[in-house]
Design a protein around this nucleic acid. Sequence first.
RNA 1: GCGAGAGUGGCGGAACUGGCAGACGCGCUGGAUUUAGGAUCCAGUGGGGAAACUCGUGGGGGUUCGAAUCCCCCCUCUCGCACCA
Length: 819
Amino acid sequence: MAHRYPFSDVEKRWQAYWEAHETFRAREDSSRPKFYCLDMFPYPSGAGLHVGHLENYTATDILSRFKRMRGFNVLHPMGWDAFGLPAEQYAVKTGIHPAVTTAENIATFRRQMKRAGLSYDWSREINTTAPDYYRWTQWIFLKLFERGLAYVAEVPVNWCPALGTVLANEEIIDGKSEIGGFDVVRRPMRQWVLKITAYADRLLDDLELVDWPASTREMQRNWIGRSIGAEVDFALDGAPGALRIFTTRPDTLFGATYMVLAPEHPLADALTAPAQRAAVEAYREATARKSDMQRQDATREKTGVFTGGHVINPVNGERLPVWIADYVLMGYGTGAIMAVPGHDQRDWEFARAFDLPIREVVAGGDIAREAYVDPDRGVAVHSTTPDGRFSIDGLEAGPAIEKITVWLEQQGHGRRTVHYKLRDWLFSRQRYWGEPLPIVWVEGDARAIPEQMLPVRLPETDQFKPMATGEKPESPLARLTDWVETTDPATGRPARRETNTMPQWAGSCWYYLRFLDPANPDQPVAAEKERYWMPVDLYMGGAEHSVLHLLYARFWHKVLFDIGVVHTPEPFMKLIHQGTVLGEDGQKMSKSVGNIVNPDDTMDRFGADAVRLYEMFMGPLEAMKPWSTHGVEGCTRFLDRVWRMAIDEDGAASRALTSEPPTDGQARLLHRTIRKVTEDLEALRFNTAIAQLMVFVNEMTPLERRPRAMIEPFVLLLAPFAPHIGEELWNRLGHRDTLAYEPWPAWDPAWVEDETVTLAVQVNGKLRATLSLPRGTDQEAARTAAMADERVLRHLDGAEVRKTIFVPDKLLNLVVAGR
RNA sequence: GCGAGAGUGGCGGAACUGGCAGACGCGCUGGAUUUAGGAUCCAGUGGGGAAACUCGUGGGGGUUCGAAUCCCCCCUCUCGCACCA
C-alpha cells in the first residue's frame, strides 16, 4: 500500500507553529520594498466561509507568500465588515443582539481562515463595529461635515417599507432592494447626504491612474455619467420667465420642434392652458402611480400630453409647443428638454406617435426613416438665424457645438454645463446596527460632536425593530429617550441626538488604512505608516463591488487626500475580481438548489492544501468556473505523489534522494519549472503554474535517484500554493526554520532551453514531419535534413520548392508549385 | 436595445508576438499489483480510417507560405447599463 501525505496532523502542526512564532507579522522596514496585498474584507455572515471566498483569499495568500520569499515586506491583513442588515434582521426575529451573532460569526470565519492556512497578520485584525474603529469612521464623517460635504436635505429617497429604511440608488437592483428583493418606493424625506458629486470629475479622471479591469472602470464611468453640453433658456410665450433645458447637442437647436417637461416639472402648471388642464392633471396622476421600474421601460410606447403652452426658441424665434411626457425624468439635467426628433431617437418616436414635425439640421441621414444621431459624421444644415447674422451651417458637430455655445453665452441665452448621472450619496439609515452619526440637533441646527468626545457609542437596547410608523420612519435609536436627549457640548443647551445611523458602506470606505496602524488611539493612521504602506498594491474581491464600495472608498480617500491624511490620489493600484465558483452542476451555488460546497467538509476529506491547490487549478482566476470534487481528489493525489517523491514510508527523507548534482536534463526541468512558476505567479496565472509543478513531479517520481538539489527548490516553489506540506517537507529534509522567508529559487537562463529542438516541417503549410535538431540549426542545414526525410519527400513528390519559410528552432515550411 | 467579455476533446482548461492545437487535471479504456479499494504503478485516450492519411478551435467568408490567434458578417452565452437629453 502506497503511503500518503498525512495532511491532518501536518496542517495542525504548522498552523500552531505559525501562530506561536507570529511568522506573518508585518513590521515597517524601510530597507525592504513593501507589498500591500489586500482582500476585500467580508461581512461575517452566519453561513461561514464559502469556496468563493476561499478562491479570493487563496490567490492573495499565494501571492503574499511568494512575495515574502522574493524579499518583499508583505502586509496581508484581514478584518470584518460587521455592521449590516442581516445581523439586525436576525435580531428583530430572535431578540439576540447583533453584537452576539456578529461575534459568533467572526469566530467561525477566523477559524476557517486559519484552517485554510491563510498567512494573515492577525495582530492587525480589525472590526468595523468596534468603538475604537468606528470612532474614526465618525471622525471622517465630521471632516466631511466640516467641509460641507455632509448635509441634510429633503430629497426623494428610495424607501423600502419591508426593510423599514431608505436605500441608496446603488442598493437597488431592478427596482427592488438588493437585500431581500423587496419593493422600493420613491418619497421625499429629510436625510443625510454626502456630496460625492463634488468629486465627480476627479473620480472619473483618476480612473486613468489605476490598473483595474476595463469593465470595472467602464462601469464607474457610466455610473458617474458625465455629459458635457449646454443649458439653454427658452422664454415663456405670453408670460415672464424662461424654461431652462439641458442638451448635449446644442448644435441641433435649430431642429427643435417641440419641448418636453417631466410630468413633475415645476413649470408644468404655469404652462398649462385651461383647456388642457384636465388632460395634464390626469397624465401627471397616472405617472405618479407608476413605479420607477415601469417608467424606465424604454421599449414602451411613448406617451405624453400637450400642455397648451408655448416657449420661444432663442435661435430663430419659433414658437414651440410644450408637452409633458414621462420619458423625460425630473432627476436628470433640468427635467426639461428641447425635442429634436430629427436627431434623437426618443424624440423621433414621440414625434411620430403624436404627429409632430421632424426637421433635419444635420445632413447625412434619412430622418424619414429614423433619427440621425451620429455626432461624428454629417454637417449642420438649416441652422442660420433669421437675420442671417449667425450660422453653424457646414460645420461638423464638434465645432458647431463650440460655436453655438459661445454664441448662446454672448447672447445670454445659455451656457456651457456639465451634468452627471451620479447623485449625492444618501448616507443615513433608519437602523440600529450601524455607526451613530456624531451629530446633535439644537433648535433645528445640526451640530458636530467635538472629535475629542468620539466615539459616539451605539447605545444598548433590546428593541431592534425600526419605528417605521406611517409617514415618519425612525431609527430604533429614537426610542432610547435617555440617549437621545442630551445637551449641546458647545453651549450646554438641550439637544437631541441624531438617531439615524450610517450605511454599511461607511466602515469599508477606509478600513485599508486602519490595517496600517490598527491600535492608534490618536489618529486614524499615523502619517509615517501611511507613507510606507500605501497604496494597496493588489486588491482582490468580487466584481459585485465594482460600483458601490469601490466608488465610495475612492471618494473618501480623495477627501482624506485633501485634508492630508493620505498621500496618494487613489487607494487601490491594481484590482482583480475573482470569478464566481459555480456548483458541481454548473449552476450558481445556492441554498435552495442545494449545491453549496462547504469548505470545512472539503478540508476534512482532502486537507487544506489540496483545496487551496484545486481552487487555483480550476481555471483562470477571473473566470467563472464550476467546482468538481473529482478535481480536488486529483490535487490530493498530486500531493501524495509529492510526499512519496521526498518521504519514505517510515517518514524519513526518501532514500532515493541523493547528493549528486542533477543531470543536464534534470537541471533543465528544474530551471524551466522555476521560470514558469515565477512568471505565472507574477501574472496571477495560478492554474498554469500548478500544471508545471505537476509536470515536474511526473518526471521526477519514476526516478530511482532523485538529487536533493532538485527536490529542495521544488519544495520552495510548491510552498506558496500548499504551505503545510511545503513546511513539513522542508523540515523533514533537515531544515529547522520555516521556509516562509527562504529566498525564492532563481533560474539560470542558460538552463531553460533544450539543446536539441523539435523542428516542425511543413509542406504547403501542412505538418509532414518533425525533426530533432541541435538548437540554432540554420535554414540550409534544416532544409537538408528535411529533404532527407522520407515523410517529407513523399509530399514533395519531386516538385520544385518555390519558397522556403524558416522560423529558427521552430518550423520549416516548404512551398511547392500548386498541387 | 446599447456597452464589455467569452465560445477549443466526454468535462475543467493549455497554446509566447500568426508557426507542431488539446499542456496539466478530471473522466474513461486496457493491463499489473492487491483479500479488497474511491490506493498505487504501466499503457492508451479529439473525430473518421486497417493504414497511408484525413477532418477538426460556435457558423460563414477573407488576409497569409501558415490562423484558435488578424479582418468582415452571423449565431450563442455571461456580465453591466437600461428613455440620462
